[in-house]
Amino acid sequence: MSFDEFDIHRLIDGELAPDVAAEVSAWVAADAARMARAQAYRMQRELLHARFDALLNEPVPPRLLAAARTPPAANQPRFLRVAGQAVFALVCVAGGWLGHAWVASGAGGNDLTTSLPRRAAVAHAVYVPEVRHAVEVAADQEAHLVQWLSKRLAVPVRAPALTRHGFSLVGGRLLPGDNSPVAHFMYQNEAGKRLTLYVVANPANRHAESAFRFERVDGVSVFHWIDESCGYALSGNLSREELLPIARTVYSDLETHGKRGG
């Protein structure tokens, strides 16, 4: 198969299916100039994150919170005003917890964003080598597994389908978290490579929602984020760009179903 310069971009942006990505990787590695370009582009991404990610952890200025709750103009149709009021109510609730998180973060209160990737990476490292006891409940009882974990976490959890990335569900287990139970799902591909999804409930928005982030913890790649119902971390012994498209699938699956269900 022949590749072109655009494939270098597709590779580092996680746009390729795993088998094609492996071929493009080999093609890039075979040529020093291509390799240098791939390295330079990866470094650009790291530099951009190093430069701008600090904004994600800054408290939101009050004027922006206020902008998100500006009532719609009076001449709008009534249904728009009702929609606006719904947003306003949402913003008030969210503003409440953001304000809380803002205060709490000063006292070191909101640390799920920090603890989540580390705990998930440890759980990944502990259970992935298990042959006979990798999971407590196997995928052939998926409905039971999901129902059980949802009950224990007291929020609906689900195991997103990752078959388009070549990974199928092995099963799951219940783990202890900082203060609450954790749902832990394991996936495996045909090569025997395993991924784990670590899910912890976020009751009453105790932890501020956070954006999609990447971290490497002791050689394990972890994409993690927190939404209004749970904190999630997807871990794997894969490169950032191999894990990114899979993490995107998990993210959009959970976001879509979470909104619909809640």
Binding site: F52, L90, A94, G95, S210, A211
Partner: peptide, 15 residues
């Protein structure tokens, strides 16, 4: 929407 503000700020700052 409020949850998106930090990301909107990062993107806007870089843009």
């Amino acid at each position: 929407m409020v949850a998106l503000i930090p990301r909107l700020r990062r993107y806007a700052r870089a843009l």
